[in-house]
Amino acid sequence: MKGHVNSKKKKRQYIGLLYILPWILGFLIFQLYPFISSFIYSFTNYNMTSNTEFIGLKNYIDIFTKDSQFYNSLKVTIFYVFMAVPMKLIFALIIAMILNIKLKYVNFYRTIYYLPSILGGSVAVAVLWRFLFADSGLVNEILSFFGIPKIGWLSNPKIALFTISLLTVWQFGSSMVIFLAGLKQIPKELYEAATVDGVSKAGMFFTITLPLLTPIILFNLIMQMIIAFQEFTGSFVITNGGPMKSTYLYAMKLYDEGFLFMKMGYASALSWVLFTVILVCTALIFKSSEYWTYYEDGGQY
C-alpha cells in the first residue's frame, strides 16, 4: 500500500520538460542572460565603439551626483505614475460598478469603453492626441465654445504631463473588464443577507464589494504601476519630452543615453536604478496590502 502511494507520488513525466524546453531556452537566452549582463554592464563604460573597461561604481555615482536630468526624469515619472495609475484604476472601478448593475446593453457599453485600450499604445493614437490637445486643437475649441479660455495642454510645462496621463486614463477599459469579472464572482447571497440586516447601499460597498475586490485591485495596481514606470510612446511622440523637459519620462532618458548616445554601460546603470525603484514600490504595496487586502482563505493564496 505504502509502496503504491510512493510510486504514484514519484511518477515523473520527463516529457513535460520537453514541452517546456522552448521556454527554458528562451528564458535563459532572452531574459536571464540580459538581466544578469545588464547588471554587469552597469559597472562598465560599454559603448559599442571603444574598449570596454570596468569602472566600478562610477556610472552610479555620476547618475546621483552629476546627472541633473536623472532627477528630473525620475521626478516626472513618479508624478506620472502616481497621477495616471490611481486615476485609471478608480475610474475603471467606478464604471465597472455601474455596469455591474443589471442593465440592458451592458455588452455594448463594455465594447465601446474597451476599444481605446487596444489602441492606446500605438503611434497613431499618440498622433491623434497631439492634434486634439494642440493649442488650437479640438479640446480648446470646445472649451472656447463654452467661453473657457484656451489651456496649453501640451505647451504648458505644468499641464503637459497631465495631458499625457489622460491618454493612459482613456485606456481604462482593460482594467474595467477585469474588475467587472471580479464583481461577478461576489456571491449574491452576501448582498441578500446584508439587505435583511438593513445595511445601506454605501455600507454594502464598503463592507462587501470593496473588501472582496481587494485582491484584484492589488494585482491591477502592481501590473499597471510596472507598465506605467516604463511608459515611452506617449511622451516620445506627443511632446518629445518637452516643454522644458516636463514630460521627459525615465524611459526616454534611458532611450537617449542607451540608443542615441550609445552610452550602454551608463544606460544599464540607469535601468537598474529604475528596476530598484519599481522593486521597492512593488514591495511597499505588497507589504501594505497585508492591511488592506482580504482573502477568504486567510491569505493562503
Binding site: F35, Y46, M223, I278
Partner: peptide
C-alpha cells in the same frame, strides 16, 4: 517574468 520590466533587459538584448 510577467513582472520583469522590459527596460532592465533591453540594452543587453540589443547588444546580443
Amino acid at each position: 517574468t510577467l513582472m520583469l520590466p522590459n527596460a532592465v533587459i533591453i540594452i543587453p538584448r540589443y547588444i546580443l
